[in-house]
């Protein structure tokens, strides 16, 4: 995180909308990527990623230290995405979506298109997707533990299991395509 971002956050905290626009510009890919990795659905992810920024805007005054902004934002993003899955599950529309995914998967396989990694990530559990995307976003193990409020040992084992699973998926894919 550079000094420019820290200044932007300080200005946004004082109420500058221009500064917040710049923050959105600088962090939109980070937030969208995190949410998409968890939700595995582009349409929902766009809405949820927007919601993340609205929440961040509303809560920005409560952020004590501007330097902790990335982990703070990542925490909002993961919580909002996980809450979204929860509420969707309650409304039971998630069934429909997973069906859609199976169809998608079949189309991919039928057309012999290389199974891309976004879909590979979709084969992991929520917990594994969350730790993996946080790691991809450049957080270290301790930061991930803080963001998720879990012990560092749990982070280590989840990341390891996720990575082993991904390795397996990539191997299967190579095997399938000859």
């Amino acid at each position: 995180m550079n000094q420019n971002d820290i200044d932007l956050i300080r200005h946004a905290r004082k109420g500058s909308t221009e500064a917040f626009t710049a923050i959105v510009r600088n962090y939109k890919n980070f937030v969208y990527r995190t949410v998409l990795a968890i939700l595995q659905n582009r349409q929902d992810s766009e809405d949820v990623a927007q919601e993340v920024f609205i929440k961040a805007y509303r809560a920005l005054a409560g952020l004590r230290d501007a330097r902790t902004f990335p982990s703070w934002l990542a925490q909002i993003a993961t919580r909002t995405a996980l809450d979204f899955i929860q509420s969707k599950r309650k409304n039971q529309t998630v069934e429909l979506d997973s069906e859609k995914f199976v169809v998608n998967d079949d189309i991919h396989r039928a057309a012999n298109i290389r199974l891309d990694l976004e879909n590979a990530l979709g084969h992991l559990s929520e917990e594994h997707r969350v730790v993996t995307i946080l790691r991809v976003n450049g957080f270290d193990y301790e930061e991930i533990a803080q963001i998720l409020g879990i012990p560092i040992g749990t982070v280590r084992s989840r990341l390891h299991n996720a990575r082993m699973h991904l390795r397996q998926l990539l191997q299967d894919e190579r095997g399938d395509n000859g």
């Binding site: 939109k28 890919n29 937030v31 969208y32 990527r33 998409l36 990795a37 582009r42 766009e46 990623a49 891309d116 990694l117 976004e118 990530l121 993996t132 995307i133 991809v136």
Partner: peptide
């Protein structure tokens, strides 16, 4: 691969 994802 994941870092290639960009916001719409």
């Amino acid at each position: 691969q994941l870092n290639r994802t960009v916001a719409p």
